[in-house]
Computed example of a mutant assay.
Amino acid sequence: MAGAVVIIKFIKRILAGFQFLTIVPTPRSLYSDDATEIGKSSAWFSVTGLFIGVMSALVWFVAKKFLPADVSCFLVIVVTILLTGGLHLDGLSDTFDAIAARGKSQEERLNIMKSGVSGPIGVAAMIVIIFLKYLLLKNLTAQSAVSPLYILTVFPIAGRFAATACLYLGKSAKEEGLGFVFISNTGLVEILTCGVLTIFIASGANFIFNHISDPLNIIGPPVLTHTGVYIFSMFATAFLQGKFGGITGDHAGAIIEGGEIIFLLAYSC
């Protein structure tokens, strides 16, 4: 009985991650309304990333049979935006708009983000990140050194790991809201769980798609690339805390986008 309770708790936390990171319908009866349980779902963000990655790989695999390679990669971008409802891009846009505001206090920058109005810098940031991601995916899926299915499956996982790292490393800019719930409940257990799960999934994908038999080569690249993603999260979180006095949910969304780019750049070099 105790084991069943633990399993149900884990399932509810995983579903909470889907509820807040995607637009995938999740029956409210299947996940907890408790703030602590919602916040601790950050440990399982990699599972949400895996779902997005599998859908991305599936779309690319099917599309490339009927469409040009560049169109197939474009559809991958579209699918990731649709599955997340553009939530992370919105966070990226709000973050850059607030950073670009000159001579503003931390409180004024937070109010700019809260307004929900996208300014020219925010729109430009979205365009740049989408275009850069498209170019990286196009180049990576055209080369033969690493399986495109591996790249497409894992890059969304890297972004969600980056978000959990941000929530662990940062302090909340506000004592309210969804960002506060996640930040205040993401501790050492959550980041370690997410990190181990991320490496496990990425290594499994590396083994399956790249047909690698050497254990060191199976786990080595995922460890190196996700260490880079963690370091990016560490510096990005410190920078944002300096600008805003803390971290918000929008910042976590921006770091998801950045984490995906870092992963893709690592395999492009």
Rank of each mutant, 00 (worst) to 15 (best):
residue 186 T to I: 04
residue 225 T to S: 14
residue 235 F to C: 12
residue 141 T to C: 13
residue 192 L to R: 09
residue 235 F to P: 07
residue 205 A to V: 06
residue 164 T to G: 04
residue 205 A to L: 02
residue 167 L to F: 10
residue 223 V to N: 01
residue 160 R to H: 12
residue 245 G to F: 06
residue 206 N to S: 15
residue 158 A to D: 00
residue 203 S to E: 10
residue 164 T to I: 08
residue 241 Q to M: 15
residue 237 T to Q: 06
residue 180 F to D: 14
residue 145 A to D: 15
residue 196 V to C: 02
residue 225 T to E: 11
residue 175 E to S: 13
residue 230 Y to S: 02
residue 179 G to D: 08
residue 166 C to R: 00
residue 191 I to T: 08
residue 142 A to Q: 14
residue 219 I to H: 02
residue 183 I to A: 05
residue 151 I to Q: 08
residue 214 D to P: 05
residue 194 C to K: 00
residue 188 L to E: 08
residue 178 L to D: 05
residue 187 G to L: 06
residue 205 A to S: 15
residue 176 E to W: 01
residue 225 T to Y: 01
residue 145 A to T: 12
residue 188 L to Y: 09
residue 149 L to P: 04
residue 216 L to A: 15
residue 229 V to E: 03
residue 165 A to E: 13
residue 184 S to E: 15
residue 179 G to Q: 09
residue 168 Y to L: 00
residue 145 A to S: 15
residue 151 I to V: 13
residue 194 C to A: 14
residue 151 I to T: 05
residue 165 A to D: 07
residue 223 V to M: 12
residue 203 S to K: 10
residue 142 A to M: 14
residue 189 V to T: 14
residue 241 Q to P: 07
residue 140 L to N: 07
residue 152 L to R: 01
residue 158 A to K: 00
residue 149 L to I: 12
residue 207 F to S: 10
residue 162 A to V: 05
residue 165 A to M: 15
residue 211 H to N: 15
residue 172 S to P: 09
residue 146 V to F: 09
residue 187 G to T: 06
residue 173 A to M: 08
residue 196 V to W: 06
residue 197 L to I: 06
residue 206 N to R: 11
residue 185 N to V: 04
residue 179 G to K: 02
residue 182 F to G: 01
residue 240 L to N: 11
residue 230 Y to F: 15
residue 139 N to H: 14
residue 199 I to S: 07
residue 149 L to Q: 14
residue 169 L to W: 04
residue 241 Q to G: 14
residue 222 P to H: 03
residue 168 Y to G: 00
residue 241 Q to F: 02
residue 158 A to E: 01
residue 167 L to V: 05
residue 232 F to C: 03
residue 194 C to W: 00
residue 219 I to M: 11
residue 227 T to R: 03
residue 140 L to Y: 09
residue 212 I to H: 03
residue 155 F to E: 01
residue 227 T to D: 01
residue 236 A to C: 10
residue 172 S to G: 08
residue 167 L to P: 00
residue 220 G to K: 04
residue 218 I to D: 10
residue 178 L to F: 13
residue 242 G to V: 08
residue 242 G to M: 07
residue 184 S to I: 07
